[in-house]
């Protein structure tokens, strides 16, 4: 087969993928806007059947469309690291529990994959991670789109240099955590009435005792808790990737092409590597 034929076929295949990505992103944004702008009054008067359904299908459907658009464009090296990230997300939660930590650390695998393999792999890892976690803990399922967003933003932060210096990582974590908290709050409110752990509910209770609506209180709690959690996660991931042998990081085209860890990841990659980096 000639190279020109290969290129033409590749371009034709990319169109539906981009359409899936655009549809997925639009569905998630539309769902968020609908929940925040149209529905806040409803939750005070009842559980809000429409809001719950929109929350479930909008965020889950958007996440599924994103995964459908992202997966075909990922290289094998990105794919093999995704199960690792998913397993880390779940297993480290257990380790954190045995060490007596007060935060969940359930996005370490997602952020790690995003830093090594790029925003696309990070987003897919986040969404699939919550879908698989849903088999063990069904309450994780509706948060799939939020987890995808964390992976996407972490990858973007890595691409634009947030991990080239360790001290930049917590700043990126703070911003990503705040955005993640904003997106997760409506899901928590409309699906489960903002029920969470005793710690997070204590924060919501403080804001509710001041007269805040449930969505406002959950959003403020999300901004506080998720920002703190992501600051810790980003710092941990930065320390781990800097402790890795340089060849372990250089096996990832995204990390090489965008010099994610600065001089440690070597010179920018060219030619074939650009495909994966560009896709990511």
């Amino acid at each position: 087969m000639s190279s020109s034929l290969t290129l033409a076929a590749g371009t034709a295949v990319q169109r539906p993928r981009r359409l899936l990505l655009a549809l997925g992103g639009a569905l998630i944004v539309a769902t968020y806007l609908f929940l925040v702008i149209v529905q806040p009054a409803e939750i005070a008067g009842g559980m809000g059947s429409t809001a719950s359904l929109v929350s479930l299908f909008g965020f889950l459907g958007g996440g599924a469309l994103l995964v459908g658009g992202i997966l075909p464009m990922l290289s094998t090296s990105s794919l093999v690291v995704m199960p690792l990230g998913i397993a880390l997300n779940i297993a480290i939660g257990q380790v954190a529990g045995t060490l007596g930590l007060q935060i969940y650390l359930d996005a370490i695998g997602t952020v790690l994959v995003a830093v090594l393999a790029g925003p696309a792999a990070g987003a897919a890892t986040g969404a699939i991670s919550n879908a698989i976690w849903g088999l063990f803990n069904p309450f994780a399922l509706p948060f799939a789109a939020g987890a995808a967003l964390i992976g996407l933003l972490a990858g973007m932060a890595a691409k634009y240099g947030a991990f080239r210096r360790v001290y930049l990582a917590p700043v990126a974590g703070l911003v990503v955590g705040a955005i993640g908290g904003l997106v997760a709050a409506p899901v928590a409110v409309f699906m489960f009435g903002a029920a969470g752990t005793f710690g997070t509910n204590a924060i919501i209770a403080v804001f509710r005792s001041m007269g805040d609506k449930l969505l406002v209180a959950a959003t403020k709690q999300g901004l506080l808790s998720d920002s703190l959690d992501k600051v810790v996660v980003f710092v941990l991931v930065a320390l781990v990737v800097y402790a890795l042998p340089p060849r372990a990081v250089r096996q990832f085209p995204f990390a090489r092409a965008h010099r994610v860890l600065g001089a440690r990841t070597g010179t920018p990659a060219r030619s074939a590597n650009g495909n994966d980096a560009g896709a990511a």
Binding site: V67, L74, V80, M82, A87, I90, I128
Partner: peptide, 16 residues
């Protein structure tokens, strides 16, 4: 790729 990621992740969780 989805089947690989899902199957591999579920197999990896107890190992990790």
């Amino acid at each position: 790729k989805l089947v690989f990621v899902v199957g591999s992740a579920i197999g990896l969780i107890p190992h990790v």
